[in-house]
Design a protein around this nucleic acid. Structure first.
Lengths: 103, 103
DNA sequence: CATAATACATCGTAACACGAAGTATGCCGT
DNA sequence: ACGGCATACTTCGTGTTACGATGTATTATG
């Protein structure tokens, strides 16, 4: 899938992946696989950005003697998803413009 | 509208704006206004990129003693629009994932 | 006669996705 | 027992891109 088309979708995808229950890096990648493919470097960049923006919080938990970072969505994160849904109307109006061939 | 969401949409919008008949910078901006707002610096960057990628060709034409650059879409440009439409299925599947709240 | 509209161009910047490379542990098959 | 694979997270550098700022020049309008 085209990189440019992904932008603006990825952040919200990651937030959606941890919306129902906290998750960790590797699992998020696997869970999103059927919808979007993203590499580790991409994911961890996104997670750091979302943390900085207070869209999620992180809790390190020991699992099988190994550390795992669980990401929890915040109220702001949930708001981000809602904003995205609102903006989608505009996106669809643009798509329809392209689909029907201009004017 | 969110900048990131625009990416991947703008190129195709501009191509669509010149699809039916050749157009020039200023007119393209006005025509797209109801769908996407883009500044001149953005537009001319896009037009240059699309020209480099052979998605369009340029013909300077004198109009009222002043030069106007008309942009003509190419076969590759039309192909680009079709590719976009195909990829839209993937975009919609991602949107549906977000809309229904994950899983 | 000033201001807005038309028309195009360039530069610098910040955001972003990604490949490459690295570290470390547990598990499975032969 | 050990080589390879899956799990798990991290950092660095790079190319693409949208945009604000700024500049030039002409025509129309009030």
């Amino acid at each position: 899938m085209d990189i440019q088309l992904k932008r603006g979708l990825l952040d919200v995808c990651v937030l959606t992946a941890i919306k129902n229950e906290p998750s960790y890096g590797y699992k998020i990648i696997k869970d999103l696989q059927p919808y979007v493919v993203l590499t580790e470097s991409t994911l961890y960049t996104i997670l750091k950005r979302l943390e900085l923006g207070k869209m999620l919080t992180v809790r390190s938990i020991e699992h099988d003697g190994r550390l795992r970072k669980y990401y929890h969505i915040t109220k702001a994160g949930l708001g981000r998803i809602e904003d995205f849904k609102s903006e989608w109307k505009e996106v669809m109006s643009i798509y329809r413009f392209v689909e029907k061939g201009g004017l």
